[in-house]
Write a protein that binds this DNA or RNA. Structure first.
Lengths: 363, 363
DNA sequence: CCTTCCATAGAGACCGTTTTCTATCCGCCT
DNA sequence: AGGCGGATAGAAAACGGTCTCTATGGAAGG
């Protein structure tokens, strides 16, 4: 029973009527790409202002066949690292006059798929996936299909902070050297004399970020003649302060001895640091600690956290830049793009040579 | 010279042709709101899958006259407080099957205006402004106009963490009790014996957030018989760690004596804490410190920061919920909505009674 | 004075959906 | 047997823009 015509938006036709011109003329005044007499132009502009007219993007997009929109799909906007990437991407998009669509998945692959579908419906110029994922054959198949669909539709799939899905796909990959960062961080600890280094990582099984960081950790130990002790590898930590805190407490009270911790993220390192203090130990005197990501928190911790710098903002910016330039350049779109940013250790105050053979205070 | 028809998207017509039915039938299968024979439905669904067909939102939005989209306009997605609000809003929007458009203004009112214009073009169901602003008559006039335009177009203007622009406007305001939080924090310091409390705040002149927090600070002092010393009010701090750090250093080395700092945000408090330590002083023994926002950082600082809890996530969630329920409820849309969330002090470890008459170490 | 051409303006097709209004088929009731 | 109504399907008109093609007026040139 509801009135169907409760609101009728003011259209280009209303403007035309009020200015006493045709619809085409109004369109041309707005676009500014066609000669219109000065007097007419002014009349139209006045009508637009008086009616408070705003063009309808959807009508435009319909005839154009595409949109000035870039889509981001991210696990959680609250993660400081992701936030930095989104910020860089948003900034670059805004610079190019693009609008941003954002969707959160909470780490759920189902929701990621649903989000991609929504973005396809939206005809976004690019769909940017930010953050690691669980890599398995099914995932690759799905992504390959999506990449091709988007490509066929004139859009582009971008993976940001996530490894490629295979060679020769119409995909833009913007990564950072995840493994090298972990290698450097671990080597840094080893060079200070540590041999029993607890790896504190996690995420879902098969998570790409964890896998790469763990690989770097292992390689660095091997290359330096330190045996890899599987007992010192913990991969059930969630990426939260709380989880880092609780796992560290547990390891301090009942694990094998260690003299240093390599935390998979700075946030986890923050939790670990709190747990260490609570046990009456200190950083770095009793236990050295390194993190990963170099988020602002790292400098606010005391001691300041030695960590691995990842250029997240630049990562986001490049993701947008590469995808849009590819389209504007009109290159044969099938081509793959792959960029890897460097990472490096930022030495602060949370690492020192081990004082003894490793702590295990409670037992 | 470019080919105009380089990509033609696969349309509902293609699906209809392949399934051997009419366009209407395909539409009905997708909507599922009209009886279609089982056999036909299956044929259509197969065709959709085979062609990898995805409906065009813009065409839909055009006939529907509106979109399933909620727009956020925010200063900076990296701010942990804003990020929490955006997250709450995004979550609630997703729960209702809405997509989110996000735009960043970098605190520039011009860009805020431009962003709102873009969102109007997009026919978003609601436009949510997150964070404080500079409040002056020109601002109110502009916003009132925008509120009415959006209302007329069947959309809704929402102010989140920002005061109302006047009575009886078609606006949804979701605030927190900013002044009461500042009052409580200041009163907390006074109750511990502090009388010389440095207010460390800033933002652009006339910024609503600063004004309210400063008002709470003043009122708390007055109500407790502590004279307000204008010399102890610093309002040129930017909302960054660096700015908090530098201003604190300057005050410690060349300002009048004080025994406590009320920092306008936790991030600023983080910088202040670092500066205090660097001067060889300690928190809370030499100087007590309170922040505002209760972001995750507050618990990672050492000592843990006493601060004011603001339910940012809930704020964002409510903003979306109220706006959408209003539209769905089909209430006479002119009505104003106004919700104020409570704030309270979270006591941690950064406040203690003053040890002496106030520090001024360098002179 | 008539043609030609430029500058400007309008008419109308089209973009991909939804939705109303019709049309058909078929079984059932009278 | 004929009319009726329910179930299903199609035709075509919107939705609000852009853009191509055509039309008109007047100035310039012969």
């Amino acid at each position: 029973m509801a009135r169907r015509d409760e609101h009728r938006q003011t259209t280009i036709r209303d403007v035309a009527a009020r200015a006493g011109v045709s619809v085409s003329t109004v369109s041309r005044v707005m676009a500014g790409d066609y000669p219109v007499a000065q007097a007419t132009k002014l009349r139209v502009q006045r009508a637009i202002k008086e009616l408070n007219y705003v063009a309808n993007t959807h009508a435009r997009a319909l005839v154009a066949g595409s949109t000035q929109t870039v889509a981001f799909i991210v696990n959680d906007v609250r993660g400081p690292a992701f936030a930095a990437a989104v910020h860089g991407a948003e900034q670059e998009a805004a610079r190019r006059g693009r609008l941003c669509l954002v969707c959160t998945t909470e780490g759920d692959p189902e929701r990621e798929l649903a989000a991609i579908h929504l973005m396809r419906e939206q005809r976004a110029s690019a769909v940017i996936l930010i953050g690691g994922t669980v890599d398995d054959p099914a995932y690759r198949t799905r992504m390959a299909e999506i990449a091709r669909s988007l490509d066929a539709a004139g859009s582009r799939l971008v993976m940001c902070g996530r490894p490629p899905i295979g060679a020769d796909m119409p995909v833009t990959v913007v990564e950072y050297d995840n493994e090298a960062g972990a290698y450097a961080a671990t080597a840094h600890l080893v060079s200070r004399g540590h041999r029993r280094i607890l790896f504190l990582g996690g995420g879902p099984p098969g998570f790409t970020t964890t896998a790469a960081r763990l690989a770097g950790y292992r390689q660095a130990l091997e290359d330096n003649g330190v045996p890899v002790d599987p007992e010192l590898i913990e991969t059930t930590v969630q990426f939260s302060r709380t989880s880092g805190y609780e796992h560290t407490r547990r390891w301090l009270s009942s694990g094998p001895p260690f003299t240093a911790i390599f935390a998979e993220t700075d946030v986890v390192a923050g939790g670990a640091m709190a747990a260490i203090f609570e046990s009456g130990l200190s950083v770095p005197e009793d236990i050295s600690l390194v993190g990963y990501d170099d988020i602002p928190l790292a400098t606010d911790l005391r001691p300041q956290l030695t960590t691995v710098r990842v250029p997240y903002e630049e990562l986001g910016r490049s993701a947008v830049r590469l995808a849009l330039e590819l389209k504007e350049g009109g290159a044969r779109s099938g081509s793959e793009q792959h960029v890897v940013f460097g990472t490096h250790v930022v030495v602060r105050q949370s690492v020192a040579p081990p004082a003894h053979e490793g702590v295990r205070p409670r037992r």
